[in-house]
Structure formats: structure tokens, C-alpha cells
């Protein structure tokens, strides 16, 4: 600060003079302590706000469809057919091939859209960026970097197919050979 920019002379700013007189002068020390009180209060309020926001991310109750369920008997599924009955309700395609029965995730491995099963082209095709997957789930066109994921399929005691979506099998990690990735029927 130079003199030029400091306190204006009365002739330049006459209106400000009386106000400065009426206001009580604030000491430097008390100003600093009030400033820190203000900042601490502000930080506490902001911190509290973000803590509440964070708490909001973990609701007490989550209404999610169950992650494991039965989908019927193996004979309900024809060989060579992609079963779309569980796409909307469970988010899986059930495919039965000559090797067995498997459950494919309906989430594109590129950016998470839901591909469509094109029966005439015999492929899953994603409408967002054009990724294509074969009936096995192997990616063969478009930008998807890896095949569709498979979920664990087992048989229940009464012979029904049981899908567990909490266990997934990824081809690129060599998990499709593991037990549960495909149900031999």
C-alpha cells in the first residue's frame, strides 16, 4: 500500500467520514480471533454438511431384487436359444448350448448400456457404441474390450436352475472354465 491508495482525503470522500467515527474501532488481535472463530464455524458447518451428504450415500434399507434366484428347470430352456424372459426382471440372458447352460449379464462391458439380442444376426448388439457379442458372450465387434460376464449357475436339490449374481465369471481372467460358470445338463 502506498500513500496514494490509502485513506482518502476528506475532500475526496466526505460521506465516509461520519460512518468511520460512529463505528467502534476493532483491534487487530480481536479481529484475528473473531476471524478464526468464523472460519472454524464455517469449516465445521461445511464438514457437517458433507458428512450428512456422505451418510446419505449409505441408506438404511436398499430395495434391490434378490441377487440369487431360481429360474426353472433345465428342460425349460431350448438348446441354441437365447432366453430373454429374465432380461427385464433379473438382468440376465439364459443361453443353453450343447455344452450346457449359462447366464450372461445384460451389461455391456464397454460403458454399461444394455445390448439387444438380434435374433436374425445371431448376436447381442449394444445401441450406444455398436459393440457386438456372440451368443457365447464373446465380444467380436465394436469397442467392447472384453466379453459379457457370466453369473454362477448351479442346480438346486429339486433339480431347478439356481443363478447367483453375486458370483461372476470373467472370460479374460480365464474364469469361464471354473465350476459354476456353465451348468452341464
Amino acid at each position: 500500500m502506498t500513500d496514494a491508495s490509502a485513506t482518502p482525503t476528506p475532500s475526496e470522500a466526505p460521506a465516509q467520514e461520519p460512518e468511520q467515527d460512529s463505528a467502534e474501532p476493532i483491534e487487530r488481535k480481536s479481529f484475528l480471533s473473531w476471524l478464526s472463530v468464523g472460519w472454524i464455524a464455517f469449516a465445521a458447518a461445511t464438514g457437517g454438511f458433507f458428512t450428512m451428504m456422505g451418510r446419505f450415500m449409505f441408506p438404511n434399507v436398499l430395495f434391490e431384487p434378490p441377487q440369487s434366484f431360481t429360474i426353472g428347470f433345465p428342460d425349460d430352456f431350448q438348446i441354441g436359444v437365447v432366453d430373454e424372459r429374465f432380461k427385464d426382471s433379473r438382468g440376465i440372458w439364459v443361453v443353453r448350448s450343447y455344452d450346457g447352460l449359462y447366464a450372461l449379464s445384460t451389461v455391456c462391458t464397454h460403458l454399461g448400456c444394455t445390448p439387444n439380442w438380434l435374433i436374425t444376426d445371431n448376436k447381442f448388439k449394444c445401441p450406444c457404441h455398436g459393440s457386438g457379442f456372440r451368443k457365447s458372450g464373446i465380444n467380436f465387434e465394436g469397442p467392447a474390450p472384453r466379453p459379457l460376464e457370466r453369473y454362477k449357475v448351479t442346480l438346486t436339490e429339486d433339480g431347478q436352475v439356481f443363478v447367483d449374481k453375486s458370483v461372476k465369471f470373467q472370460y479374460e481372467k480365464g474364469q469361464w472354465d471354473l465350476p459354476g460358470a456353465i451348468l452341464k445338463v
Binding site: P127, G142, P143
Partner: peptide, 28 residues
């Protein structure tokens, strides 16, 4: 909104369509 139903074609807002076009060629 229905997570199991993506419109076909599923397009981003117009100002992001350039990025969506890049996504055809590159990883997310």
C-alpha cells in the same frame, strides 16, 4: 428410466455426441 432398456440408438446430448463418437474407437 429402465436400466434394462437402452433406446436404440442411445444418443448422448448433442454436445457430447463428439465424445460418444470417440468412444466407438477408444476405451471409456
Amino acid at each position: 428410466a429402465n436400466p434394462t432398456l437402452s433406446p436404440n440408438p442411445a444418443k448422448a446430448p448433442w454436445y457430447f455426441l463428439g465424445l460418444q463418437e470417440m468412444l466407438v474407437y477408444f476405451d471409456p
